[in-house]
Simulated scan of single mutants.
Amino acid sequence: MTRLLLLDLGKTGCRAALAEPGGAVVARAEGPGSGGLADRDGVARALAAVDAVLGTLAAPGPAGELRPVAVAAGLAGLATAPGRGAAFAAGLYDRLGADLRVLLTSDMTTWHAGALGGAPGVVLAAGTGTVALAVGPDGATARVDGWGPLLGDDGSGHALGRAGLAAALRAHDGRPGGSPGLLARARDRYGDPDRLPARVHGADNPARAVAAFARDVLAAAADGLPEAVALVARAADDLATTAAAARDRLAPATTGDRTGDRTGDPAGGPDRPVACGGGLLAAGAVLTDPLDAALAARRLTRTAPLGDALDGARLLLEDPTVPHHALLVPLPAVAP
């Protein structure tokens, strides 16, 4: 039976789906991520993550039902280490057959394609980290931020959590600019502030441990705590700045829609949609209201994603006209 295999392999999770060409999704599976293809042993860990979800997909059906004719995968870390794509593809051939059609790109590319239905434009992902990606009709791209917690990710859950903890610890120290309200919430989440460095640095994922406090900052802002309101407003402004920078790094003519809109300068023409997603936005109006205002000031409008990374992977397999084909990692020919 002809099947398409769709993969969304992130750092913390792997999702897979089997679909009939032009038809319904017939099976889905989720499993742990790989940590990123660019990490040490990244290819082996990515293939192990794929093995886990393939085993789940294969379990309910008869033997051989899983075998797809084509696979499209969005891989975390591939943009940083494109040379590892060939080794990952070789692992797929070993598992699924040498006649398999394989398309590989970054997970941000497949999410962009799914979020905008294959159209050019800008997407903004705001979770523990932050990254924006603009794609033009010809496949030209501009990626902004995504530099990680030590170098960037402005406006992210990590940035907001860290800013909130800094305000809490200033209050703990008796320094100006501290927030007793956030200090109380930090105690509730982490315990004794003097033990906070050990709690954070000893965590399996220190960036995520810090980002967890973003929930408390957002809750405090929803309760009207002035210091938290100011921190959320700053995060919203940083996110809007990131989205606008992605738009502006492409020539104005490359950010129109697929129907041929090429009018005006981005700063003075019609508002441009930005598909926004990520766990940080689940906070709701306490964040999205200031984000909408910050985007509007930059002639941008927040829209909900049309689909997800698995939808984007499917578009790559079924629609040769989407500009994201220019972002595929070249793979060597497979010997017959």
Rank of each mutant, 00 (worst) to 15 (best):
R187F: 01
V43S: 01
A236C: 09
A166E: 15
A245S: 15
H112R: 08
A233Y: 03
P68E: 10
D292F: 02
T130C: 15
D194R: 13
D153Q: 03
A166M: 10
V334P: 04
G129F: 01
L133R: 05
V71N: 00
D311W: 01
G61M: 08
L250M: 12
L306G: 14
A245H: 11
G33V: 09
R3P: 07
G10I: 06
A285C: 05
L104W: 03
A326E: 12
D261N: 13
R272P: 05
A38D: 15
L9V: 15
G127D: 07
R15Q: 14
P176T: 12
A209G: 06
L196N: 06
R185E: 14
A168Q: 03
R272V: 12
G42W: 02
F88Y: 14
T263W: 11
R215L: 13
L7Y: 03
D257W: 08
P252C: 12
A313V: 05
A244C: 10
P332D: 12
C14N: 07
V217H: 04
G174P: 11
A167K: 02
T56D: 12
G279F: 06
L151M: 14
V122H: 04
L231T: 03
A222C: 11
G55M: 05
A52G: 12
L287T: 07
H172Y: 14
E20Y: 00
G129C: 04
G269H: 08
W147S: 03
E227V: 11
A253H: 13
G260F: 11
T110E: 09
L150T: 12
A233L: 04
A246C: 10
G278C: 05
R262Y: 07
L75F: 07
V200K: 11
A209Y: 04
L331K: 03
F88P: 00
A24Y: 02
G268I: 06
V334L: 06
D238V: 00
L306Y: 04
C14E: 00
V26S: 13
G161M: 08
A113P: 02
G148P: 12
L231W: 02
R314K: 11
A244V: 02
P68D: 07
D138Y: 02
L5N: 04
L66Q: 09
A221N: 09
D248N: 14
L75Y: 03
D107M: 07
G35I: 01
L316P: 07
D194G: 15
C14I: 00
L66K: 03
R101C: 12
A243P: 08
G152S: 10
L116R: 13
T254Y: 10
P330T: 08
P332G: 09
G77T: 06
D261R: 12
A209V: 05
A46R: 01
A90K: 01
A167P: 03
G35T: 01
R262Q: 14
L37G: 02
R15M: 06
L5K: 01
L124H: 06
A24Q: 13
V334C: 11
A166I: 09
P68H: 07
T12E: 13
A58C: 10
D153L: 01
R215N: 08
T12G: 13
G268H: 15
A246N: 06
G36I: 03
A282S: 13
A203L: 04
D319E: 12
